Computed example of a mutant assay.
Amino acid sequence: MSDALRYPFPVLGVAAWSGTGKTTLLEQLLPLLREKGLSVAVIKHAHHQFDVDQPGKDSYKLRSAGAAPMLIASRQRYALMQETPGQDEPDLDSLLALMVPHHPDLVIVEGFKAWPIPKLVLYREGVGDPAILNDDWAQAVALTGESPIPLAPTMTRLDLNSSEEIARWVTEWADQQCRTLA
């Protein structure tokens, strides 16, 4: 991990091509990781414009009027919205800094394939370029079958269809990373 991305928690990217099932896998993994006692934060990269507040609502009106950032809070949740005009891509380092006060045991980053962070790479046959399996930051790969390209003998291979196996690996990986951070 680069010095710029040093945080008091491990950061694991989940990298795959669109259509591989990243979000579906995370929906299965998060409850399993919580059962194993891990507090997990997630940062998701979106490739499109999006709004989390609705037109006509006060938060939308205030953000549209220039509130930067706009924080809306209730008893049940809060959301911080910040406009980022002129920014080509989100800055992962800045987003990770937002996680520090929440003290997660692990931050999973969905997307941000090009960032130099440890990754769990997912590959489903016929979806995207298999070259993604050669990521220098890959810690493990989860596949649905045989790898279409040779993998390093030290690479941990996981079954993409076994969320239990992947959760076990993530937990062990996060524990090992926490020991090195201490």
Rank of each mutant, 00 (worst) to 15 (best):
F9N: 02
V11R: 04
L12R: 02
L12E: 00
G13E: 03
A16Y: 01
A16N: 03
S18C: 04
T20L: 01
K22G: 02
T24K: 07
T24E: 07
T24A: 15
L25R: 06
L25D: 02
E27I: 00
L30K: 06
L33F: 08
R34F: 09
E35A: 15
K36A: 15
G37K: 06
S39W: 00
V42I: 10
H48Y: 08
H48N: 11
Q49L: 13
Q49E: 14
D53K: 04
G56D: 06
G56Y: 04
D58F: 04
K61A: 15
A65I: 05
A68Y: 04
P69V: 10
M70R: 04
M70A: 14
A73I: 00
A73L: 11
Q76R: 13
R77C: 02
A79P: 01
L80D: 06
Q82S: 14
Q87P: 00
Q87V: 13
E89V: 11
D93I: 00
V100M: 12
V100N: 09
P101T: 09
D105Y: 06
L106N: 05
V107N: 06
V107E: 07
V109L: 11
E110T: 04
G111S: 10
G111I: 07
F112G: 10
F112N: 12
W115C: 13
I117Y: 04
P118N: 14
K119R: 11
R124P: 01
G126L: 07
V127A: 08
V127S: 09
G128Q: 10
G128H: 05
G128A: 12
I132V: 15
N134H: 12
D136K: 12
A140C: 09
L143S: 09
G145L: 08
S147Q: 04
P150K: 12
L151R: 06
T154C: 07
T156G: 07
R157H: 09
R157Y: 08
L158P: 01
D159Y: 08
L160D: 05
N161L: 13
S162T: 00
T171E: 09
T180F: 07
L181D: 11
